[in-house]
Write a protein that binds this DNA or RNA. Structure first.
Lengths: 274, 274
DNA sequence: CTAATAGTGTCTATTAGACAGTATGTT
DNA sequence: AACATACTGTCTAATAGACACTATTAG
């Protein structure tokens, strides 16, 4: 039983340093979609799913790539930390941001005990007016996945990062996997785990939400939209089925996209229904 | 640029106290299923979904109920903290445990800045041999939910706790809600939010995983299993549809449950397929 | 016999998958 | 005309929802 008579009295006598204190950071998986022109003028530009990485110019992990992130300040709301970092990294506000997972292995940071809450952010690259920070770079993502592992390849045009992550079913009763890094040469910390978790979350959510539209420009063709779904899901979709599914999520505009060497396509816009 | 020549040198000079340090706690939503006998001997005993709460006997929030939890130790893996608390609270190991969400509002603890990573745990009450700790109690949960709010009623036979939580769609593109506590007299901290998040997660996961079996005894009838699904989903299910869906998740045993005032039912067991 | 649950057969409605076809721009 | 994509019609397969029916026990 407490020796205090009231909550005020208790709080006055309370010393926060009586308990273990540790550092909290946040890491952000910033995702977008990028295009690469094809040699054949008639073909559609190839779409890639891409993430933003930052090159560390200081210890620990000097010279390695990592997710944008930083310390959570003691006087800052948890979610404000990734927002602050996102704003400093992209000059964008009002970005789709979702908490992913909190990592707390004892050895995840060689400096000291650090817990990290990771977030996933989705941005439309067309809204990015300002240049990236000098150390930042977009990497195109290729994900090959099966029941037992994920092969992730990241490429920014100059450098290729290859990750292999082993998947172990945590229990028979769910779909939850424990991810273990099997191969990683160029990424700092446990960031391959964050990338794996983020990509899985996205692949999943794409099927029952409208999140892709956070990465789309205002006007887009259904072909482009389908490509984005395909690149996230890692498989081809059938046109009629795709169009049936997204039919009530988009609205046709009077605009048309022409000059592509084939039949022009109508431009659509995301339709808010709820 | 760094003035250090190597990572070892850097780490040697590193002082953790140069950065903000805060306290991390963990809260656990321990879930189970309980039965209550009906007056009519022929009727099946009514099933309830229930959670474990602890009465605080100290400030802050003295006298209020809260989720079992505690501080994460600086030399302890993040997930070991809920495991340790779970073991001390129930004497059970190897329990289904899943990270829910990390809460970090500035004002969530009147003592100081505390971040809390919440977990959901599913237990089979029949495996609980030891008595509960003196301050702990199981509360039956009744959840009424619509697009705009959740009405949660918790009842342990002596006391009734009534919560109202407002749901606001965070963005048009997803199903994510921001939960705001509208009514809460008897629960400490932001624990109503944890309960709301946990119940939502469970309602969702029940549809595409086998997690319910973590709350079931080894042998059960399909009627009992259906009741558990119904109580978690908050709606009646049709027998044939239900049996179709769980058909390949369970296997019939030779055991039979009799003496219930109606046709005996076969006892089933969870079948591991993967 | 009756109340209550156990368990099954089958029809219908809805949704997803597959394929074939027509339309229309650029070079 | 040839190419490449835009866009649509329709058949089929798989799944979910609904209802009606039979079965079997304790009291």
């Amino acid at each position: 039983m407490s020796e205090f008579q009231s909550e005020e009295e208790f709080l006055k006598a309370y010393n926060p340093n009586d308990y273990d204190r540790l550092s909290l950071t946040t890491d952000i998986l910033i995702c977008s979609v990028s295009s690469e022109e094809e040699e054949n003028y008639r073909k559609l530009s190839k779409k890639y799913f891409s993430i933003l990485l930052v090159k560390r110019d200081d210890y620990p992990f000097k010279g390695k790539w990592c997710l944008p992130g930083g310390f959570v300040r003691i006087d800052e709301e948890l979610e404000d930390a990734p927002k602050r970092i996102l704003a400093s990294e992209t000059n964008l506000h009002n970005i789709y941001l979702e908490q992913l997972y909190t990592y707390g292995s004892l050895d995840r940071d060689p400096r000291m005990r650090v817990i990290s809450t990771s977030y996933i952010a989705l941005v439309d690259k067309n809204r990015l007016r300002d240049k990236l920070l000098p150390n930042a770079s977009w990497f195109n993502v290729t994900l090959l996945e099966d029941e037992k592992k994920m092969n992730i390849t990241l490429d920014n045009g100059e450098e290729t990062i290859s990750l292999v992550i082993k998947k172990t079913l945590r229990e028979q009763t769910t779909d939850r996997y424990k991810y273990t890094i099997v191969k990683n040469d160029k990424l700092a910390f446990d960031h391959p785990l964050v990338i794996a978790a983020g990509l899985s979350r996205l692949r999943n959510k794409v099927n029952y939400t409208d999140i892709v539209f956070n990465m789309m420009p205002e006007y887009f063709t259904l072909g482009e939209l389908q490509q984005v779904y395909e690149v996230i899901l890692g498989k081809k979709l059938l046109d009629p089925a795709f169009r049936r599914i997204i039919a009530n999520k988009v609205e046709k505009t009077t605009k048309v996209k022409t000059g592509e060497g084939h039949r022009p396509s109508a431009l659509f816009r995301y339709k808010v229904t709820k």
